[in-house]
Design a protein around this nucleic acid. Structure first.
Lengths: 189, 189
DNA sequence: GTCTATAGCGCGATAGAC
DNA sequence: GTCTATCGCGCTATAGAC
């Protein structure tokens, strides 16, 4: 069974459509049509278009913030923590590539939960920054600008949703290893 | 004088608004209000909302494709070419951060010029890939997966529009050097 | 749980006065 | 070159039949 509930089907179908055109450009009629029903019928399962967006984004944001905290607070060294962060992003994106597009591009259309989302993202980024700063202090990482490092890593990891779907028969574990290598050791010979 | 023409003012004002909420969520009334006029008055300078988007995106896409071609075809070594690509992105983004947001996020809302945009982007990506592949063949770069390298570099460079505005009193040249270092040599000590 | 019908509103764009 | 007024349409969401 592909969907657990009709509500779940609405959310997943919407995520696919949101990825292509963004939240604002997708109509309730579009979502209904993709499911083979009429727009009015959607409201038997969800209370608004906004609720769909919130369901897609918030659970993903919570996952990232929670997992990042666990990684940051573990006893592993900084390089291992960074590898775990790469794996977290590759795995989560691989499991929900369409939701990741909304998380990245449609969060500003959240209404009631916008502040909560921003709080989650701030915690996640602060923990990520902490891992990098600890790596610099412990001389595992180069003594560079931690903001530039954070920016570079985060940009790449946040863009995974664009690239992973293009490589359909991808070996996830191999890709994670290759990406970690490029991000951590660079591309220079 | 901040704007050369009223049309130019419309385009730049729109880019700021598109960056915040995306093309679809911004109305002609929003744009007019930001300029202190009525929506109907906009049509004395532009023929449609679509034309505004096209003006923002196409000129930027042409700049990138053109400059990338020049870099790729130069006689410099691959590492230098990569540094020039980083500088191209930092400089262009620094000059037009709002337009870069549309280039990244709103291109799918192009209508008549969508195909042309996709052609430009393909040329640009192919040249970028060519620089990386030449670097691998010439043993300047590690013998890794060129697609993963391209993905990582491109993701970071395309996200510059999010980060550059946050560092207001940024030394552009210094930032370009730091970013090149992180992207090419990695962060591992 | 899905349907038809429609309320109420905001959209892009145009007409024509000034 | 900007305005007021408005057209025609599509939007989210609701009411109520089946």
């Amino acid at each position: 069974m592909k969907y657990e509930t009709r509500k779940d089907e609405i959310i997943q179908t919407s995520a696919v459509l949101f990825q292509k055109k963004g939240y604002s450009a997708v109509t309730m009629r579009d979502i209904a049509k993709a499911m083979g029903i009429k727009a009015a019928s959607l409201y038997n399962h969800i209370k608004s278009k906004q609720e769909i967006l919130s369901e897609i984004i918030i659970s993903l944001a919570e996952q990232f913030t929670e997992q990042m905290k666990i990684i940051k607070n573990s006893d592993d060294n900084s390089i291992d923590k960074l590898k775990q962060i790469v794996a977290l992003h590759v795995n989560t994106t691989s499991n929900n590539q369409f939701g990741m597009a909304s998380l990245n591009n449609d969060w500003m259309h959240l209404e009631a939960e916008l502040e909560y989302y921003l709080k989650l993202r701030k915690n996640y980024e602060n923990d990520f920054r902490g891992v990098i700063e600890e790596g610099i202090q412990g001389s595992e990482l180069i003594n560079g600008n931690p903001e530039v490092m954070l920016f570079s890593l985060l940009s790449t990891l946040r863009s995974l949703y664009i690239w992973l779907p293009k490589k359909e028969d991808l070996d996830i574990e191999k890709f994670t290893t290759e990406l970690s290598l490029v991000l951590i050791n660079g591309i220079n010979k």
